[in-house]
Structures are given as C-alpha cells and as structure tokens.
Write a protein that binds this DNA or RNA. Structure first.
Lengths: 348, 348
DNA sequence: TTGTAGGCGTTATCAT
DNA sequence: ATGATAACGCCTACAA
C-alpha cells in the first residue's frame, strides 16, 4: 500500500533538510533538541525504518555473516545456535546455507552470498569438497573467514575445532581400562580430517598401553549407519573377533549396535561400544551407548567470537586455531566394571 | 586488496559510457556485438561481479526469502531442505533464522529481515508466540508471507501444513484395529494448533468405532520427553490403566517408552505405542516405535512454491491452504496381529 | 547503437 | 545548528 517512509519524506513534511533528519536519527551531537524531537515524533508516526540496503551500499558492509554448513544435523544445529547467539549480540545477522554435503551446492551458495550480501563467512566444509577455490575467492576479497568443526589444512584460516585426537584417545583409553583387549575402530572416509584425527587418538591410546595395533581392526567406511552395520558384521565374523568397537560417529555406533544385537552378543559383557557426538539418540537406545561429547554450542560461540575479532582486527589471524576438549560420557554399552552403580539410573 | 570492479571501471577502461556497459552485461538487444565482446572480455578479466546491494536498492527487491523457524530439529531441517531446493531453482536465496521457540527472538529476527533484507517470509510460528503483530507488520508492508507446518488461525495467510487430524486418526484407528481397547493420548500444550488437531483425529477414530472417550486418558502435557515420561507413569499407575498410548510426537513417545519399560510392561503385547514424525530415532530403539510420517521435504517444497506463486501473483492468496497427508509407519511397538511376518526385519 | 541525466535511500564533507 | 552536494553501484528513460 503506502510505500515505506524515508528520511526524505520526513524532511519534506518537516520542512528541513535531509541531512538534518539523518543526523537527528543517529543522535549526532550537533542537532537542536527541538528538531530532534520533531523528527523522532514524525518518524514514529510514519513508522520509519532505515533502509539497510542503502546503508550497506554506502558503507560497504552489510552486518551479515554467511554461515555455510554441510547439513543441519543435531551437532551442527547446536553450533549454529551458538554462532547465532554471539552474532546477534554483536549486531550481526546470520545467513545459514546448507550445502547438503554437495560440492556444487556449496559453490553456488558461497558465490551467492559473496555477491555483497555478507561481510564474511563462517564455514564448515562439505565432505565432498576437495577443491577450495571458491573459499579462496573469499580470502582474495580480503573478507573475514573462519572455519569451524571440519577444518582442513588446505584452507589457511582462523579456525575452531574439537580436539578430535583427544576424543579418540579418551574413548579408546576408557575401553582399555574396562579390560577390553581387541579394540576395533570404525573410522570414517580417509580424506576427512576429523576421521584421521580420531584414528590418531585411538592409536595413541593403544601405544600408551603398549597394545600393538592390528590392521584388520582398523576399518575405514563411509559416514553412515548402513556402512557401519556391514563393516561390523564383517568384524564380528572374524575368527578372532574384536571385543570392543569405537565408532567415530553416533550414527555409525547405531549401525554397529544393530549388527551386534543381530549376532546375539551382549553389551557391555561380550563386547564394548563407544560412539562420538553424544547425540540424544545414544541415551535412548538400550543399552545406552557411551559417546564422546562435543561442546557444540560453545564451539559455535567461539567461532562467531573469532569471526568478530577477525573483523575488527586487521592483523593476520590465520594462524589462530582454537581447540576445544571433548568429554567422554559413559553409559552401559562400555561399562563392565562397577556395573552396579550405574544400573539404578534407568531414566536419562 | 583491489576493490571489486564496477561497471564504471569497465566503462572507463573501454572509453564508453556506463549505460552501454550495463546494457551489454544484460544482453540488451541494441548493442554492438563488438562492444559487447569487449565488455565481456574485460569484465571477465577484472572478474566483475554485479553488486547485489545496488541492484536491490534500485529494483526494490532482494531475491531473498526470510525463513523463520522455531528450531532446527529433524523434521524442520528436512522442510528447510525442501524450501531451499525450490527457492534456489527460482533464483531466490534463503535466509534461515531460528527463534529457539522464543517470542522475543522471533520478533527480533523478523524485524531484522524486514529491514529490506528479504522480499518476503516463510514462517513456522514459535510455540511461545501468542501475539502476532510482528507478522502482521509483514502483511501491512504487502510482503508475501507463507505459513508452514505450525499454522494458526490467528494468522491469515497462504499456508502449507500436514493433515494433523488425519494423522491422529490413522494412528488411533491402527491401534483399535490391533485390538487395543483403552487408548490414551499424550497431547501437547492446549494452545498449539497441531496438538488439538491430532487430538481431534484421535476422537474421530474413537467415534467411528463407537468407543467412548475417557477423560482421564486424554493428557495434555508439554512437548518434551520428561513430561511425557511423567505423564505416562501416572497413566500406568491408574487402576484401569490404558493398554495403548498415542503420543503426538516422537520425543514424547520415547519418554513414554522409558516409563513403560521401567514398569516392566512389554510392547506390543501388554501395551501399544504410536508416535508422530517418524524421526530416525524411532527405528533405532527396541522395539521400533510405530509413527506417523510427515512428508517434510515435500511440505517444504510446497511452501516455497506457494511463496513464489504469491510473489508473482497479485491476487489475494490468503485463502490458499495446502494440506498434505501423513502416512503411518507401523513397527513392533503397536503390531500385535501377525507379528511373525514382521519379525524377520530386524535391520532397518 | 550509444550517451546523458536522474533516481533508489543513506551518509559524509563542506559550507553557511 | 542546518543545508547543499556528491557519492555508493546500478538501471532506465530520454536524447543524440
């Protein structure tokens, strides 16, 4: 109906100049209190809203942050909440785009946001991505860019990530302490950084306890339930089957659990199981699955903080690398010592 | 480093006027092929990218859609994927904002996007929201607005939603057909539309089979696991306890299941259970929980389609109301007739 | 076929 | 304390 009011309209109505209105609006020091009051009153009446586009065009910044994520699963959603929290506080609006783990989609989204829609990016790389030119374009434009969660050495930028190696270590050490001897690992795809780090942690734990790693117990498989299910079936049909499995994601843990149950094995007595992420589902299945918890919300907040800092700081921050510690949450699937103390807690 | 090139730069380099460059860029019909080639070549070389802000300012449209959602849970994430798919196709970029079920946050987000950042909205209302002024402001601005998933009569706008009543009906009828006699319902908060619709479906099914509804078996409780757990404990401690429970969300179903297991009752023999949403978790617990599946991805696509239509169509579309049918997925928790045929399917 | 001029809504600079 | 003017990058009459 009535198109939105502009400072021009206000100026005309009040018979003063545009610049005065603009000043009054922004609480500039040198403007007559009466004038300001008049301006405020009228702008209220016309329900004036400053036009962000014009402002952005003029100031060459949008106060938007582009967030590119591969999907919207539980952990990522938590992280985004964290990003959102801090960004809002700092006066930024977050634009979330999901790439569906697709390289092409990731490129399209990045390019779109790059077209003067955002001041910078907070990025978690799609698993399909092996070329990083579209992200490098961001850096060429001198735009702030923070990488989070899925960090890769191929992308030199300030980053926030979990100490994945420590996560792998904690999980494996826990299994060792529970008396498991032949511990297998379902690692993810070989090209994924988090996959290898968690594997490194696993190896480090074995080393600490002077256990020789067995090649057949180290299985690389895709990041989902079906593959984990199949891989576990194979593991369990070995002549010397593993007596514990560490999977580097909860979804994989669920797959493993299905195979274990099907085989008629009991957790934690016959076999131990530990997952990664501590998604809600692991506390809902029976037995509850132990899992390495990520401080996802915190991690998101940290990413946004780092972004803001990069924004307001002209120094090169690309060497900054925040690393958060995970925390192992122990449930029935891996706890065979002192079982009695945990039995009571059926709920939650 | 080098600030982005503009048509102005190109014009200067080529010693032609800005408008000619502009025309060449947009494949206008009346421009000399040679000129065009030259322009194209140079714009390539300078890696020219049109400035979206300037364009939006000039054309008064941004080609962005604001999507406001209460959270990023499984179902909503699917819907957003659907929205994204269609929007991208139509040349729109999606800006997702989550309100965290908070009224205040919802207002802030809406206002921010309203400030000339988007051309319109696709909205799912937060559960906390009881006043709709911030959304009405959208309509006052004559902006397209589509409501999806959580629809409310207080917001007159084109909408896409699930046939929640039918979902409630299907779930309840299924339980009746399986021979359950005293069927309880864990409904959500009374002020939520989807809650009441699913309850209506429940009542309709009872009516069809001439079963008198029992007041004590109709429980309103908050939309989460804890409350459902407590409510179920109460139900099970009644002298004439229900022999089946229909919960209007899967999270509630999980809560109910915990209470049922704790009580030592077996599903589906002693008691039947049906949830709503068909989230992945219901197929992972033991026994698998039957659940009403939403065509979430489709629903999202539909919402975006409706949005685009509203956009390109000046007619009043506020009466349009797309309703999609849900589909009951039957698992072990409710199937006590012909159990043998399902037993084989342990996996998936 | 091409160029000129004005405008989109805002701020910044320089006068007054 | 206030106004006039140019600029941000682009488009669209209208004129040449």
């Amino acid at each position: 109906m009535n198109k939105p009011a502009t400072i021009k309209d206000i100026a005309r109505h009040l018979n003063i100049s545009i610049s005065t209105v603009s000043r009054a609006m922004r609480n500039a020091p040198d403007v007559n209190p009466d004038t300001r009051r008049a301006v405020m009153a009228l702008s209220e009446e016309l329900s004036y809203q400053p036009n962000k586009l014009a402002l952005s065009l003029q100031q060459k910044q949008t106060h938007n942050i582009g967030v590119i994520v591969p999907n919207l699963d539980y952990v990522l959603a938590c992280m985004i909440r964290g990003i959102d929290e801090v960004a809002l506080e700092a006066g930024y609006t977050v634009m979330v785009c999901q790439s569906n783990e697709s390289f092409g989609r990731e490129m399209v989204n990045t390019r779109r946001l790059l077209d003067s829609l955002v001041d910078g990016f907070i990025i978690s790389v799609s698993s399909e991505t092996k070329v990083f030119d579209h992200f490098k374009k961001i850096q060429e434009k001198q735009m702030p860019m923070v990488v989070f969660d899925r960090v890769t050495p191929q992308l030199i930028a300030p980053s926030v990530r979990l100490d994945n190696e420590d996560g792998g270590f904690q999980a494996t050490e826990h299994l060792i302490e529970q008396g498991y001897k032949r511990i297998a690992i379902l690692a993810g795809p070989k090209n994924l950084g988090i996959s290898n780090s968690r594997l490194d942690g696993y190896l480090a734990a074995l080393k600490k306890y002077k256990i020789m790693p067995v090649e057949d117990l180290i299985v690389h498989c895709d990041f989902n339930r079906e593959y984990a299910y199949l891989a576990t079936q194979e593991l369990l049909s070995m002549k010397k089957r593993p007596d514990a499995i560490f999977t580097i994601s909860d979804r994989m843990a669920i797959g493993a659990m299905l195979a274990i149950k099907e085989k008629g094995l009991k957790m934690p007595q016959d076999i131990g199981l530990v997952g990664f992420n501590n998604e809600p589902v692991v506390s809902l299945v029976t037995p509850g699955i132990s899992s390495v918890e990520q401080p996802a919300f915190e991690l998101g907040k940290m990413a946004a903080k780092l972004f803001i800092e990069t924004m307001h700081n002209n120094d090169d921050m690309s060497a900054v690398e925040e690393v958060l510690k995970p925390k192992l949450i122990i449930r029935e699937s891996s706890q065979r010592i002192a079982i009695k103390t945990t039995r009571s807690k059926i709920y939650k």
